[in-house]
Nucleic acid binder design. Structure first.
Lengths: 318, 318
DNA sequence: GCCATTTATACTCTCCATGAGTATATCCTG
DNA sequence: CAGGATATACTCATGGAGAGTATAAATGGC
């Protein structure tokens, strides 16, 4: 039956490649999103998929524990990358990167590892819009993007470039869309405005703030942030990042930290409560300014009760 | 800087593996969703990722064109699988499958290829709920699932199994959720109710209707259907599957075919029009019964104009 | 002890998208 | 010309989301 397949298949190891497993491991501490980094904050935890690994996830867990001492909890696959020329050195062997998103808490850090928690906005300063953009960054960013658009050959292409920049970065009175993390990074890469682009051969220009990473790790990080920002809207994944008990404001601050935007307090609470995602513990927060808040815990039951998925189709009842 | 990485990296080809590229290529013809199959309808188009391929997508396009004569248009990555024991023979080399979803139209089929368009509901009969479930299937399915739940060791596990079945299959007066394609397939696999499970070593039981596929191809297909069903709700991807001109009813029938559910006609039209996704061509459909309908075309402009992404967060304006 | 400050919590009000259904128009066929 | 079939235009009720006001309960400074 699969004859047609078999004869096309790899014979021996002519098409053998290596696969790297890469983890975007996220935590939120005191209202700041953090990611686990190694190699002097220049890389994400990663390692090759080996024959000994029973599955991709198993391999990933092994590497992350070995490099960071941190056990992996919630994990989901992100994307598989393989473009050459993005890997740092073009002569690298045929290698692909299979990336994962992991959610956890910052506690229980292992000792004796060269892993650190780094703020993710160090790598993507423009993604933090909670206090608006730092005035300096906002100005340089927009002018650099305009210069890039202008540098296109013809006016058609120029307009096209600017439209793309305006949409992804919310310029020209457009709305900021926090989910377009990857699109923004890709655009900056194409425009040669980040160190990785220069490293990979782009014309050397003045570069925009934001720490670079090895290989395509910052691109993978962008993918992870984008996925997480999209997912918190329709799945209760924030709770993987919260302590067992928390106040509603702490919950809100965490979501705001991830989304990079401020939320409307009253409406946020209404949303959480009507979805019955949390229940009161009975206890009350201590050591606070202002009126003390009730403590809540996540209702794990909801995960089993509902198969949460919003339909946006105008279904018919007949 | 990346020293810590390098010393962990694969040395030589000790960790060399092979990667298969697999395509779920979808078209909709006369209100029926089709997928491109090869090997006597038992496999999806696929082939190994080779050193000559410049990127994963390039490799995929090469294989699909070679095997089906059909050029690939819209493509997006689905998932990367690697579990052993799912591949058919457990002794297979360490191999992973990188899967893609492609959208196209059924026309322009190449000659001299052993590829076919197969209805996707042949592989997933229970996913077509447009006319309700075929009475026979509905009855057997529910009773088999109940038997599987009952076969658990203790009552706790039994209840847990039944709850899972009820949620994924919309039993016990629960709502049917068309997006849970993969969850349903995985459950049937675990329950040993499909041929692939028996092939991989499950206890031989009477099996449920639905054609099997090589390796984990049916699982990949389930992933593709699920992704497409989710995506048509928030991205205008249906148009990749439509001819240049179409009536609103044809469009509705296509969405219904993909979703496996019937839609409310008037509300569907309101939705399409208010989103300004289409514009009239001025022409009118010929060869129809009933009042002839206006023909529409997709407004490609919307893709550039809007960065479509629905926020579900209670944003603050300050 | 009073007051400014800070946070928590409870409501209100408006607008609009969505679900559901009714009414009318326009074609074809016998 | 009736009847069947489809297209298209409205109506109406409901509920969720955006935005804002009002009140409660703590702290610290004076």
């Amino acid at each position: 039956m699969a004859g047609a397949l078999k004869k096309d298949r790899a014979t021996g190891s002519a098409n053998a490649i290596t696969a790297d497993l890469v983890a975007v491991l996220v935590a939120v501490t005191e209202g700041e999103p953090k990611i686990m980094t190694i190699a002097n904050d220049g890389a994400l935890p990663s390692g090759p998929f080996e024959f000994a690994h029973r599955s991709l996830q198993t391999g990933l867990r092994a590497w992350v524990e070995a490099q960071t001492g941190h056990p992996l909890g919630y994990v989901e696959q992100l994307y598989t990358f393989a473009d050459r020329g993005r890997a740092g050195d073009a002569k690298s062997p045929h290698s692909i990167s299979i990336s994962y998103l992991g959610l956890t808490r910052e506690d229980k850090v292992g000792q004796g590892f060269e892993a650190h928690w780094s703020g993710w906005y160090e790598y993507f300063p423009w993604e933090d819009q909670r206090a608006g953009l730092p005035a300096s960054l906002a100005k340089t960013l927009a002018s650099r993007l305009r210069a890039w658009a202008k540098s296109a050959e013809n006016t058609g292409l120029q307009r096209q470039r600017w439209q793309r920049a305006a949409i992804t970065f919310g310029l020209d009175d457009r709305e900021w869309n926090e989910e377009l993390v990857l699109q923004r990074y890709e655009l900056l890469y194409e425009a040669g405005l980040i160190p990785e682009a220069v490293r990979d051969g782009a014309a050397a220009t003045t570069v925009i703030p934001g720490k670079p990473m090895t290989g395509d790790h910052r691109r993978i990080l962008a993918t992870g942030i984008a996925r997480l920002r999209a997912k918190i809207k329709y799945r209760p994944v924030v709770f993987e990042l919260m302590p067992a008990e928390f106040t509603l404001l702490q919950l809100q601050r965490s979501v705001e930290a991830l989304a990079g935007r401020l939320l409307h307090k009253q409406n946020f609470r209404r949303l959480i409560e009507q979805q019955q995602l949390v229940e009161e513990t009975g206890a009350i927060a201590a050591d606070t300014v202002g009126r003390p808040a009730k403590l809540f815990r996540f209702r794990h039951g909801v995960l089993a009760e509902r198969a949460i998925a919003g339909t946006k189709l105008p279904l018919s009842r007949t």
